[in-house]
Design a protein around this nucleic acid. Structure first.
Lengths: 350, 350
DNA sequence: ATGAAAGCGCTAACAT
DNA sequence: ATGTTAGCGCTTTCAT
């Protein structure tokens, strides 16, 4: 375990002062003669010196890290998103601190506070709990927040930026797609609706039915029970459960709109066990367009979210603000959702 | 943006010295009178003081963080693993710094070095490149490494701990399962075999064939091209490509063993497009038993890895060592793989 | 049981 | 163009 090489060692070896080395390290080359610069460069190489970022941070107060809060990377949608966020952040020299917070407000707050303590000044918030007032204090202290997949209320616009697709519109066109095929008994399947994006999606479903003059049937809105701290581990199981309950009723739905693809896959599993064929006996529409949507049988009709685009915009917004390049407040980039029609939807038989 | 409250403020308010507050913060209660302790406690609450972990770290040299290197959390297997690692680490007060390093040795090394610079003293290495000698230097400087899903060579045992399933054995029983059903032309499908776990799996396949007296046919070992820096994004696509190439040959295989479930799903997709039915015309076995394996059609026969167990053991080993509770060197916890027989495998038709 | 003071390694005035 | 020096907020001897 070697002793750590410090800036003092470099200075000594190069025969200059520490401040000159510091200037060198921070790219203030205009202040340094060519000859000195070379000496420093050489000293650094000879000693294999690497600046201590912790000391730097103690002095400057901030670190090249951003936080990323998601429900759980066990859901491939968030896993993919997290990967893209990491890549985009890396392009600008930032690292990502990931928190799977399972939609638990307590964990989200704790995680955010811890990040702040570590000098993190920006967080991408990929969890969209309805009430994020607990973040306001942090925002007031200068923490930058970019929400992901979460439309903002007016008061929030002041504090946060955001990116996302138009969830309401996405489910609206998904539902209209089923309506257009002739479906009338259309169910909506979701986990506990405590998040803004889910609420938006439900709204889109209701709106589409209303616009089509289809009578509302609250029993067709299936909402999984809340399981605290469980992330998205159970989405598939919940979807399966939903299928069981909805497909064993007397008047069963001919179409199901799900809140995301994982639920749709769960519905697939349930329908299969019940001997209900998709799309002959039941049409299913998902949301997200995770990679698997294309390869399940039948390929899933779903609403696509442009994950790489969303990730890069989120990181861009966040880092621009951190670096002071962005001063307008409360921007929300709403991307248009796109319905990808595959073979899980068809005309209803009856 | 409020001024940060420091230990000095607390000391002043409580009417004690900073060292006493420091002792309080570090739980050295035996050194503090009850009365003083209460005064400090109160001062902390009134000021809403939170110690600055960066300053502490500069002094002590280490941080309650561990690193986690994976190919990509976009693969649900690693996403799930990452989630479990995070939960286990949190139980012991550690945070996780995640790096999707896409099996790129350069990125892995850079990431590891950066972590070390930040005071991270332990990394779970969930990527299993064949050559990890580039980590030796770091290990010599005191970095603790626990490899995941990577059997260790003798020389590595000195430096690293590890957890994983017996990959060779896993694929061995998977292959024997197909052989037992009567298959003789069995293919092995994998991405570029640059990792120890993949090599082990291939070996298990070869061994099983040999033990059964089946003639080897190198053309049945399908290996996707190396795409640098691409993580597991393309596993499904590669699997599909493999299916196309293998199933359009004259003498096509009746069974396919895949290196992991994502490849198996890719094979599913390719087979479907080609009109090859699973398991009637083709049996498929996966590896990992990701959640989706159970719900695809037909449900995938696969080799299960006990992810939560692996994650908790990995974290336990790492933190025990970090905290000096573990001194034996080079432990490798090898968990037995379990074949989960579902409906993607059957007797060959011909 | 408590306090004073010396750093941890770096940055950034300020001085030269 | 380069050097001197005072911190950043904390921990940790060493005194008392």
């Amino acid at each position: 375990m070697k002793e750590r090489v410090t800036i003092v060692d470099v200075a000594r070896r190069a025969g200059v002062s520490v401040s000159t080395v510091s200037n060198y390290l921070n790219g203030r080359m205009n202040l340094i003669k060519d000859k000195t610069r070379n000496r420093i460069k050489q000293a650094i190489e000879e000693l294999n010196y690497r600046p201590n970022p912790v000391a730097r941070q103690l002095k400057t107060g901030s670190a090249p890290f951003i936080g990323l809060v998601v429900p759980s990377v066990a859901n491939p949608f968030y896993g993919t998103f997290a990967h893209h966020v990491e890549v985009e952040a890396a392009k600008r020299g930032f690292h990502v601190l990931l928190g799977n917070c399972c939609r638990d407000p307590e964990r989200e707050r704790e995680f955010a506070e811890e990040l702040v303590a570590y000098g993190v000044r920006g967080i991408v918030f990929g969890s969209s709990l309805a009430d994020i007032s607990y973040l306001s204090d942090l925002a007031k202290e200068g923490l930058c927040l970019v929400t992901f997949d979460r439309s903002l209320t007016n008061s929030e616009h002041v504090q946060f930026d955001g990116v996302g697709v138009d969830n309401r519109q996405g489910v609206y066109i998904a539902t209209r797609h089923l309506l257009g095929l002739g479906h009338r008994r259309i169910a909506f399947v979701s986990g506990s609706i405590r998040t803004v994006n889910r609420l938006d999606r439900l709204t889109g479903y209701e709106q589409a039915l209303r616009d089509a003059g289809v009578e509302e049937d609250p029993s067709l809105i299936w909402q999984g029970e809340t399981v605290e701290g469980f992330g998205d581990f159970n989405a598939i199981q919940l979807g399966k459960q939903a299928a069981y309950q909805l497909l064993t009723r007397s008047e069963r739905p001919t179409g199901i709109v799900t809140v995301n693809d994982m639920f749709a896959l769960g519905v697939y599993a349930g329908a299969k066990e019940l001997g209900v064929s998709i799309p002959q006996d039941l049409s299913v529409v998902g949301f997200d367009d995770i990679e698997l949507a294309e390869i399940v049988e039948p390929p899933l009709t779903t609403v696509r979210q442009p994950i790489p685009l969303l990730a890069s915009k989120a990181v861009e917004l966040l880092l621009n603000r951190l670096e002071g390049k962005e001063v307008r407040e409360g921007q929300y980039y709403m991307f248009p959702p796109e319905l990808i029609v595959r073979r899980s939807t068809a005309e209803p038989k009856y």
